[in-house]
Amino acid sequence: KNAAKIVNEALNQGITLFVSDNKLKYKTNRDSIPSELLEEWKQHKQELIDFLTQLES
């Protein structure tokens, strides 16, 4: 999976991924984040940080 797909899947579940101080963060109104999503974010962390940083610049 690529970073764009992961970010879109998160958005579809009401979760916004973003970068703050070079760290991957998220915002959501959900009570909890599915563990498989958290695991996927960890596996692709640097790719996600790079992707989101490019989007914001």
Rank of each mutant, 00 (worst) to 15 (best):
K1Q: 10
K1H: 11
A3P: 12
A4I: 07
K5N: 09
I6K: 01
V7R: 03
V7K: 02
V7G: 00
V7S: 02
N8F: 13
N8Y: 14
E9K: 07
E9G: 04
E9T: 07
E9I: 06
L11D: 04
L11F: 10
L11S: 08
N12E: 15
N12I: 14
N12H: 12
N12D: 11
Q13Y: 13
Q13C: 11
G14F: 04
I15W: 02
T16A: 06
L17I: 06
L17W: 02
L17T: 00
F18R: 03
F18A: 04
V19D: 01
V19H: 02
V19E: 02
V19R: 02
V19S: 03
S20A: 12
S20M: 09
S20F: 10
S20Q: 15
D21G: 11
N22A: 08
N22F: 06
K23C: 12
L24R: 00
L24E: 00
K25Y: 15
K25V: 10
Y26R: 01
Y26G: 02
Y26A: 06
K27P: 01
K27G: 05
K27N: 08
T28P: 10
N29Q: 10
N29A: 11
N29W: 08
R30P: 02
R30Y: 05
R30Q: 07
R30W: 06
R30I: 07
D31E: 12
D31K: 12
D31H: 11
S32H: 13
S32Q: 09
S32N: 12
S32R: 09
I33S: 02
P34M: 03
E36Y: 14
E36A: 10
E36I: 08
L38F: 08
L38Q: 06
E39M: 08
E40M: 13
E40A: 08
E40R: 08
W41L: 08
W41N: 00
K42W: 12
K42H: 12
K42Q: 14
K42R: 15
Q43V: 12
Q43E: 12
Q43D: 08
Q43F: 08
Q43K: 13
Q43A: 14
H44G: 02
H44L: 05
Q46C: 08
Q46R: 09
E47N: 05
L48P: 00
L48C: 00
L48K: 00
I49D: 00
I49W: 04
D50L: 13
D50M: 08
F51P: 00
F51R: 01
T53P: 02
T53R: 12
Q54H: 10
Q54I: 10
Q54F: 09
Q54G: 12
L55D: 08
E56T: 12
E56N: 13
E56S: 14
S57G: 13
